[in-house]
Design a protein around this nucleic acid. Structure first.
Length: 828
RNA sequence: GCGGAUGUGGCGAAAUUGGCAGACGCGCCAGACUUAGGAUCUGGUUCCCGCAAGGGAGUGGGGGUUCAAGUCCCUUCGUCCGCACCA
């Protein structure tokens, strides 16, 4: 057969190809294993590990396709890549399944994991399965308990009363994310707030550092959106605390304000209904309305609806330390106990909320700040509060100062006289980790009623294992509380009868440090060996959904700082670069079971193959944007892969023969090949717009098919080889098949070096220069690169299509950008 | 209300540094091959006028800077997502 005669092409049989390579790759466990020996530069690619619901969904496919494409590219670029996966395996769905189907959470979870592991393997993702981590197994959650004890020792884990989301129907606490629009996600009951004693982790200890790093080490590598959300969540607020004095007993009532400069305008104090002082100011029948108010506040309000401000006068007064004035003490439903000191001074003239409250209850409004360029507001008659900075008036010695200056001086004055000081508060609260749940990490604490109180479980007794035999009713206390063998223990300190803590940990604990465990997943003595972890930290690239922008990503940052402070890492932050991919939608809405608009990846893989699915997940939109699922468009990707496969099979013999004299077709093909290589390499290195990378591969195929007849051996060989290499990160199966079967090469593509683009071959023969007249495109011409300005201007004016546009007109000026454009500006 | 994102053909999108708007794909139209086509291949496809050559308009709306604006500035509208009495 002559090398230039196309041979018959082979149809693309995705099923045969993909099953064959899954078997081959599964038989080679070292294939995706990091060398971890320092012989090559390291790169840690981490994707958010999945909750094992039992089925992979399209969001996973997209997330993991991005990570896998990147990992394969990095391998080919010579990095030692750590690319692990695991299972975020504790959580409520397992318990709900247990209640519903009478299946044990452990069995349910482990069988889900087995199913999903198969699905991930089927997708061709390059995970190092030897590092698989499963958080619901004792060899993992033992270390949650270990960290908990370490935190307890350092005062970072403690017990306190705290407000929790309480579902009255399920009779249990719900995590914040399990409350949907004020209702229980499982039974749709309206969720209440309830005070419960629970274990908390002192994330506020790191609040300042967590905030500061968003402006420094994270600023370059994290999306601005995520940083903004975290800053808002942390909610640092600079102000001052001031002690008012309760007129009867002389005790202090501490308030927090950011506007101490307005304190001469304070016309009352307002306490949160749960403020401890309230129960002493109002006793007996007088307290009843407060209880009602607390009840109201604790009912979850409908989102988006502003609750009416309610107040109660206590009939008591407090003294303003700045001017000695007595102001009435009120109770207000809008004052939050959990923020600041749980008490505020109301300055109605300069705070919108205070204004609304005081007008409602006819409390005086006294303006003390005037705009820099205007007079003090007239009262009576004020229609709204003036909340901005200005100039202080009617404020004794501070009158005339600018607000900013007054804030400093007045805080200093308060401190000097012992009734206050400058102070900072945070919106972020300590992390309540107790859950009245079975399927989580047991909190390793024992309550000794005899004398020792709360005693930590000794390290050598870890893990505190979850008992297997347990009954699930979905009602009442934690299921663990009903198991005497679990609850009843001897106090580790005095040996007296004692009870185990029956709460389990929030599942966000599990995901707060799993990425450390990947570096040393089987360590029996420690969560991980610092010497093994440190070379991989901080993580080069983390990829996941923006839904975790706050909770998981703040908890992980917190946990890393704790790990640092106990001397197990030198990294301040876990993640250098964060990438948040967009959601997969159908019909403009996020795919979800309740909407009934899910597309099952399994069906798609069966029909079109994993390569096609991966390609579509990357092609439909840039990775950071939401994408719309479209099966018609999926078929387009399948067509593309078919074209690639048939093109290769038609031309493989020719390429192997290496015959023929290179001609114009070869030059065209090689030019496009190297242009594509430049384009794709740039996409990887700069911005991960894989949709344009794949479009470039399609363009390449269009060009190759156009010049197929004239393509000769040597050029064909180069084209097929490099096409195959470039395709591999996106479509690993078909590229590996072509490499071995059609091109007769050996070895795994992931181990091949990424090809270098040849800039000389990529260069066009000449520059196509558009010619504009008054900014409008009128003609184009092809000139040699580097043609001088004068020559370009001459050629442009000589163009036949240009002449009619400039004839008889005055040329005002000619803008000429060599190799780019000529614009002739004419008048008349 | 505050903060953020986003707005380009019938659809998903591209245009990376102010320099040819719509690459690539889907869909659609026409044709080829075919017993057949929901396979494959070829050509066309922003809108308006025109048989065509060609011309005009055009990146949510309005205004501006510039030889030149999807891109920069001002203003306005729509959509989506966070947060939402945080003193």
């Amino acid at each position: 057969m002559s090398p230039n005669t196309p041979s018959a092409d082979k149809p693309y049989d995705h099923l045969q190809i993909e099953t064959k390579w899954i078997d081959a790759w599964s038989a080679d466990p070292a294939l995706y294993r990091a060398l971890d020996d320092g012989s090559k530069p390291r790169y840690y690619v981490l994707e958010m590990f999945p909750y094992p619901s039992g089925r992979l969904h399209m969001g996973h496919v997209r997330n993991y396709s991005i990570g896998d494409t990147l990992s394969r590219y990095l391998w080919m670029r010579g990095f030692d890549v750590l690319h692990p996966i695991g299972w975020d395996a504790f959580g409520m769905p397992a318990e709900n399944a247990a209640i519903k189907n009478k299946m044990h959470p452990r069995d349910w979870t482990l069988s889900n994991i087995a199913a999903m592991r198969q699905q991930l393997v089927r997708m061709g993702f390059s995970y190092d399965w030897a590092r698989e981590v499963t958080t619901c197994l004792p060899d993992y959650y033992k270390w949650n308990q270990w960290f908990f004890l370490k935190m307890y020792e350092r005062g970072l884990a403690y017990r306190r009363m705290g407000k929790v989301n309480w579902c009255p129907d399920c009779a249990t606490v719900l995590a914040n994310e399990q409350v949907e629009e004020g209702r229980c996600w499982r039974c749709s009951s309206v969720v209440e707030k309830r005070e419960l004693e629970q274990w908390s982790l002192k994330i506020t200890h790191y609040a300042d550092e967590l905030l500061a790093e968003t402006y420094t080490s994270l600023e370059k590598g994290w999306p601005e959106r995520v940083l903004t959300m975290q800053r808002n969540w942390i909610g640092k607020s600079d102000g001052a605390v001031v002690d008012f004095t309760y007129a009867v007993t002389g005790e202090k009532i501490r308030i927090f304000t950011t506007r101490i400069d307005t304190i001469y305008g304070a016309t009352c104090l307002i306490l949160a209904p749960e403020h401890p002082l309230v129960a002493r100011l109002l006793t007996g029948d007088a307290y009843t309305p407060v209880q009602a108010m607390i009840g109201e506040v604790n009912k979850q309000q409908e989102p988006g609806v502003e609750v009416d401000k309610q107040g109660l006068f206590t009939d008591h007064y407090a003294v303003n330390p700045f001017n000695g004035e007595q102001v009435p003490i009120w109770v207000g439903n809008f004052v939050l106990l959990g923020y600041g000191t749980g008490a505020i001074m109301a300055v109605p003239a300069h705070d919108e909320r205070d204004f609304e409250f005081c007008r409602k209850y006819a409390i005086p409004v006294r303006p003390v700040i005037r705009p820099v360029d205007g007079p003090l507001a007239a009262e009576p008659g004020m229609k709204a509060a003036f909340g901005e900075y200005g100039v202080v008036e009617n404020s004794g010695a501070w009158s005339g100062l600018a607000s900013a200056e007054a804030r400093k001086q007045m805080a200093a004055h308060a401190e000097a006289h012992g009734f206050g000081n400058a102070a900072t508060t945070f919106r972020i609260q300590d992390w309540g980790v107790s859950r009245q749940r079975y399927w989580g990490t047991p909190i390793p604490m024992i309550h000794c009623r005899a004398k020792c109180g709360t005693v930590p479980v000794p390290y050598e007794q870890l893990p505190v294992e979850l008992p297997y035999n347990v009954e699930f009713t979905g009602k009442g206390r934690s299921p663990l509380a009903n198991i005497p063998e679990f609850v009843n223990v001897a106090c580790p300190r005095c040996g007296a009868p004692a009870e185990r803590e029956t709460d389990t940990m929030d599942t966000f604990v599990d995901s707060s440090w799993y990425f450390f465990r990947y570096t040393d997943p089987q360590n029996p003595a420690l969560p991980f060996d610092p010497a093994k972890a440190q070379p991989w930290f901080p993580i080069n690239q983390y990829i996941g959904g923006v839904t975790h922008a706050i909770l998981h990503l703040i908890y992980s940052r917190f946990w890393t700082k704790v790990i640092r402070d106990i001397g197990m890492t030198t990294s301040n932050e876990p993640v250098t670069n964060l990438f948040t991919q967009g959601m997969v939608q159908l019909g403009g809405k996020a795919m979800s079971k309740s909407r009934g608009n899910v597309v099952d990846p399994d069906d798609m893989v069966r029909k079109y193959g994993a390569d096609t699915c991966r390609l579509f997940a990357l092609f439909a939109a840039p990775p950071e944007r939401d994408m719309e699922w479209s099966e018609a468009s999926v078929q387009g990707q399948y067509r593309f892969l078919s074209r690639v496969y048939r093109f290769v099979t038609r031309n493989a013999a020719k390429a192997r023969a290496l015959e023929g004299t290179s001609g114009a077709a070869d030059r065209q093909a090689l030019r496009k090949l190297h242009q594509t290589l430049q384009k794709i390499t740039a996409d990887f290195d700069n911005r991960w717009h894989f949709n344009t990378s794949i479009a470039a591969l399609m363009e390449l195929m269009n060009t190759l098919e156009k010049h197929e007849a004239g393509l000769t051996g040597a050029a064909a060989a180069e084209v097929l080889e490099k096409l195959c290499l470039m395709l591999h990160p996106f479509a690993p199966f078909i590229s590996q098949e072509i490499w071995c079967v059609e091109l007769g090469r050996e070895g795994q593509l992931i181990r091949q070096p990424w090809p270098e683009a040849n800039a000389d071959l990529a260069r066009e023969e000449g520059a196509e220069v558009p010619i504009q007249v008054n900014g409008k495109l009128r003609a184009k011409m092809v000139v040699p690169f580097g043609t001088a300005k004068e020559e370009l201007e001459r050629l442009a004016q000589a163009e036949e299509k240009i002449k009619p546009w400039i004839e008889g007109k005055q040329i005002v000026k000619i803008v000429c950008v060599p190799d780019k454009l000529v614009n002739i500006v004419v008048k008349g």
